[in-house]
């Protein structure tokens, strides 16, 4: 199957999963009612459920998943390291640190700007620390170091949490969830993620040439530092906005590109948009399953569910490739 066909198929899957996600929940709503609710032509209750709760949640899940998938594919392509992911290179940890600081200071309105600002701060630090050695190894070393620092600082804040309730709030937030998704989050996350994924897609063709090694790519006219800049800014936008609205969601950026590389081929230029679509579909599906399976008690957190479902599949894939 050609990559164009994979793109089309995954787009259809993503739309289908989002429609299902809008229909499914504590109050089942039929497709026709959902579409009427989307247009604001159903009953007030249905209009409210669809427009204020389910659509924002489905759109945000798709948005966060797309950002994670595209970031993972771009980072794996640039570093030529199968373990590279937004979580490993510190983007998620920096964004989470920003959000945790906002939570710690009891200023929830600043969670989004703080997460995005810290993701960018981490990206700037990575670029600065790797400027003497632009390229894969410099970015990986700087990213791991900055990520470790951000994780340690997050731990420090949790260590000095003023009371057990504040600590539990931080811990639950770090597990990742879309249960508080609303239209305000959509207005922030969607444009930032769209720009971020766009930048990452632009870096794709250069990543194809970088597969030949950095020296050869440079001899073919590719600027390694410009490509790194595109990827760092793209990841900061995607991961910063994603962590701001959904908390820290791990593993999607690692295993979605692996699965799509396995089934759709290794071409980085196509892998980034395909991973965006795959990540979006996966996260919408997992969020929908959480809503279906969680009872009225403590719901399963999205970050935990993605790892629980993703890890066995990833291990199976690694075993098959071996």
């Amino acid at each position: 199957m050609s990559q164009k066909l994979w793109c089309f198929s995954l787009s259809m899957v993503c739309i289908a999963v989002m429609l299902m996600s809008i229909m499914v929940g504590t109050t089942p709503i039929t497709l026709s009612e959902s579409l009427a609710g989307l247009a604001g032509q159903s009953s007030n209750d249905i209009n409210t459920i669809i427009q204020d709760i389910r659509v924002p949640r489905a759109v945000l899940a798709a948005c966060v998943g797309a950002g994670l998938g595209a970031s993972g594919a771009a980072l794996q392509g640039f570093t030529r390291n199968p373990l590279a992911a937004p979580g490993l290179l510190g983007f998620s940890a920096c964004a989470a640190l920003g959000a945790v600081i906002a939570l710690y200071l009891n200023t929830p309105t600043f969670i989004t700007p703080a997460a995005i600002a810290f993701a960018f701060g981490g990206a700037v630090a990575m670029t600065m620390f790797s400027r003497h050695k632009p390229g894969a190894s410099g970015l990986v070393l700087a990213g791991i170091g900055i990520g470790a620092l951000a994780t340690a600082l997050t731990g420090l804040l949790m260590n000095f949490a003023p009371n057990p309730w504040a600590l539990s709030e931080l811990v639950y937030w770090l597990m990742g969830s879309l249960k508080h998704a609303d239209l305000a989050d959509v207005k922030v996350a969607v444009p930032l993620t769209a720009i971020g994924v766009g930048l990452l897609c632009l870096s794709g063709p250069a990543l194809r040439v970088l597969g030949l090694g950095e020296e050869t790519a440079r001899s073919l006219g590719i600027s390694v530092s410009n490509t790194q800049l595109l990827i760092v800014i793209g990841c900061a936008l995607c991961i910063g906005s994603g962590v701001a609205v959904a908390g820290a969601i791990g593993f999607v950026g690692l295993f979605i590109p692996h699965i799509l590389r396995f089934v759709a081929g290794p071409d980085e230029a196509w892998l980034i948009p395909l991973s965006a679509l795959g990540g979006a579909s996966f996260l919408v599906l997992i969020d929908m399953l959480i809503r279906i399976t969680s009872g009225p008690g403590t719901p399963l957190y999205l970050g935990i569910a993605t790892s629980l479902i993703g890890v066995p599949f990833f291990l199976w894939l690694a075993w098959r490739q071996t």
Binding site: G211, L212, G213, E215, T216, S219, R261, G265, P266
Partner: peptide, 11 residues
């Protein structure tokens, strides 16, 4: 330019 230790994606 043909590098000494030339590489390419295996797949």
């Amino acid at each position: 330019y043909l590098a000494q230790n030339v590489t390419a994606p295996r797949h």
